Amino acid sequence: MWLVGVRDGATIALLYAAAHPDGLAGAAIIAPQLFPEATHSAQLLRVRAAFETTDLRERLARYHDEDDDTADPASLVDWNIEDELHRLRCPLLAIRGFPGDEYSAATHIDALKRHAAGATPLETPARQDADSVSLNRTIVRFINRCTPLSQN
């Protein structure tokens, strides 16, 4: 099975691949989030201030258990999956994302390259065209290169 994911879906695909290192044919991920960006951390801390000084906690309470710390958005400031990435073994195509996409920071792809040395092969195209046709072609070419014809 191949997984393809964008943003949160890319992060979930990475976590699945790390948890099941021999369970995937490969993954193509676009704009994965491995940790909060500094600007997002600042936003989360602003939300925490609102959480502590307004009725935000009560408004979110119906969606969370009383003891559920995930109701506090700032609990995500220290969230990080880099330690999971060393278990990756499957072929991995990691695409930064589209130009101008605020969630496609190069720092995530750089961190992925540092921590996912076991992903074979690991390809990270330098740039991505801003259209879905080019993106789909890039993914299909990668899958074709990594999958024997008998499995296509």
Rank of each mutant, 00 (worst) to 15 (best):
E123C: 05
K113L: 06
L14T: 02
S132E: 10
P36E: 15
A94Q: 03
D68E: 07
S104E: 08
H20V: 06
T39K: 15
D8E: 11
A28Q: 04
A38C: 01
A106K: 14
T53E: 13
L93T: 06
N152R: 01
V140A: 13
P125N: 11
I30Q: 07
T138Q: 11
K113T: 09
V4T: 12
A38G: 00
A50E: 15
F35H: 15
R114Y: 05
G5Y: 02
L149I: 14
E37H: 07
H115Q: 08
R59A: 11
H20G: 09
A116W: 01
A126S: 15
S41F: 01
T107F: 15
Y103V: 07
T147D: 09
R48Y: 09
L44E: 09
H40V: 14
H64A: 09
L112W: 03
L24N: 02
D65S: 14
S150E: 15
S134Y: 13
R137Q: 11
R141G: 15
P36K: 09
F35K: 15
L14I: 07
S132K: 11
E123S: 08
R141P: 12
R137S: 08
A94L: 05
P36F: 12
F51L: 07
L135A: 02
L149P: 09
E66H: 11
A119H: 02
A28N: 04
E102H: 00
R57A: 10
R96L: 07
G5Q: 05
A71R: 14
Q33W: 11
D129M: 00
C146W: 04
S134E: 13
L149G: 12
H20E: 07
I109G: 02
A74D: 15
A111Y: 04
E84C: 13
P73A: 02
I29Q: 01
V6G: 05
L122E: 02
Q128F: 05
H108F: 08
T138F: 08
T39E: 12
P125L: 09
Q151M: 14
L14W: 00
N136M: 06
I95A: 05
A25E: 03
A38Q: 12
D69C: 07
H86E: 00
L112H: 00
A42D: 10
Q43L: 12
V47K: 06
G97H: 10
R137G: 06
P125S: 12
Q151R: 13
P36V: 13
E37K: 01
A31W: 01
H64M: 03
D65I: 02
Y63Q: 10
N144Q: 14
G100M: 03
A28G: 10
C146L: 10
R96D: 04
L60H: 07
D22A: 06
A106V: 09
V47S: 08
L76E: 08
A28P: 04
A116I: 01
D101H: 01
E58D: 10
P148S: 09
E102R: 00
L88N: 01
P148Q: 12
A31S: 14
P99M: 04
V140P: 09
D22I: 00
V133N: 14
T39Q: 14
E84T: 10
W2G: 01
A105P: 03
K113F: 09
D8K: 15
A105C: 04
Q43N: 12
R89E: 00
L45K: 07
T138R: 12
